Simulated assay, not measured.
Amino acid sequence: MKTFYSIAIVLILMLSSCKKERTWEVDASGVKVDLVIHDISKRFFNDSIPLDKLKKDYPFFFDNSSDSIWSAQRKDPFEVNIYNESVKQFGDFEKLNQELIPVFQKYKHYFPEYETPKVFTYSSGLQSLDYPVIYSAQDKLMFIAMDGFLGEKHKLYDSMRVEQYLRRNMYAERVPSAVVGAIAENIVTYSPRQQKFIDVILYEGKKLMLQDILLTDTPDEYKIGYTPQQMAWAVSNEGNIWNYFVEQNYVFSDDRTLEKRFINVAPFSKFNNEIEQNSPGRIGAWIGWQIIRKYLQENPEVKLQDLLLDMDSQKILQASKYKPEIDGASTTKYNTKKKEGVDELYHYAE
């Protein structure tokens, strides 16, 4: 089923998403954050700095490769070119610094137990495109691979045959969202023992909720990496997507292939029917995000830290009262026929 939206409708959707985000608006400008961005690669590709000093200053940056390999890499024209192209995007880091300071101010406001990390940028030689931001709350270190944000049309991505659906998020403006995503990976509770589909989508939803909290003025499509058209499709088909998950007995399923179909980054989500190529990837994560938003709306007394620690997915689902409309009708109509294996869901839906 194809759905087409005018620019006006897309703008309305964006405005409505901004309205949801206002509940997280706080004045954190008074929170002290000492953020200095250290460009490791600037020093790495400077021949006047001895390798031994670099290894002493940045021990976490070097593995057990021989000095001859590192010395050759410092002079490799391809590696140097990648770094130079990265610098064209980021310049002197002043803009990036100003974008990240408010993020870390809000982070420290809501999570004072975590210290502001030391932030290091580097050129990965196009080896960190899948995970361009790495953060360790324990070590208080964050690494940003600049070459993961060169712009979707950059020729270096042509050489690596990077798929278009990945490229649309590979530009410098996406760094704040990628930073929040890395933070979320650290502070949202994850349990390998609780991996039913509902557990997975709510885990993803909690991580996306942190985008709401730390990036209050950012449109939703930037947070999840959708185009405005994909966001419009997701909003329009929310009830149909949830109904599909219910009717296929997916909600409480422990089938791990569902993550590949509906959670992983992909050109589209795999419904195995005619609508799937109109859908954006990660639609399960998007549904989990809406459930968490609805849960917080219905339960405003819940503390943020408690939600991040709460692993009772069925309780969260039930307390959210999540029932998106299907083509204008309430999803309470989906339980007209009880299906084997979804007793808990039908009990919740009644």
Rank of each mutant, 00 (worst) to 15 (best):
I37V: 09
L13S: 12
A137P: 03
R22D: 10
Q127T: 14
P50Q: 07
D254N: 15
T336V: 11
D310I: 02
V10P: 05
Q297M: 08
V251Y: 07
E325P: 01
S66G: 13
I187V: 07
G205V: 10
P267K: 12
E21K: 15
D312V: 00
F62Q: 05
R282Y: 06
A145N: 00
Y5R: 12
P280E: 06
P132F: 06
D158C: 02
I82K: 04
S313K: 00
F111I: 09
A172C: 06
I326H: 08
N46L: 12
E85D: 14
I7R: 12
Y348C: 02
T216W: 05
Y114L: 07
F245Q: 01
T218I: 13
D139K: 15
F252L: 12
F60K: 03
R74T: 10
V119D: 07
Y203K: 08
Q318S: 11
Q230L: 09
K338M: 08
S313L: 00
L15G: 14
Q230P: 08
Y165R: 11
S177R: 01
R293P: 00
R193A: 11
N169W: 09
K118L: 05
W24L: 01
R174A: 11
E238A: 07
K42P: 01
K315G: 00
D255R: 12
V188W: 09
R168Y: 15
E274L: 10
K339R: 14
D306K: 12
Y348S: 01
V179N: 04
Q277N: 05
D254L: 04
N278Y: 14
P192C: 10
I101W: 05
M142S: 05
I292S: 03
S136M: 04
R261S: 13
S68K: 13
V179C: 00
E340R: 15
G288V: 03
L215N: 02
K55M: 13
V251I: 15
S253G: 06
G151L: 05
A184T: 04
W286C: 06
V180E: 01
S320I: 07
A145K: 01
S65A: 12
Q98S: 14
I213E: 02
E274T: 13
N81R: 10
K108E: 05
V180Y: 01
K294D: 11
M160R: 12
D327A: 13
Q164M: 13
D67N: 15
F245W: 06
L150P: 01
S236Q: 10
L215C: 09
Y250G: 01
R282D: 01
E221M: 12
D310H: 03
R22G: 00
I241C: 04
F271V: 04
L96S: 03
L35A: 07
T218M: 11
D220I: 07
Q138S: 13
I283C: 05
Q164S: 15
K303G: 14
I183V: 08
I326D: 04
N273G: 01
E247S: 10
L96C: 03
E204Y: 09
L100A: 10
N264G: 04
T218Q: 08
I183H: 09
V180S: 01
D52N: 12
V10L: 15
V119T: 14
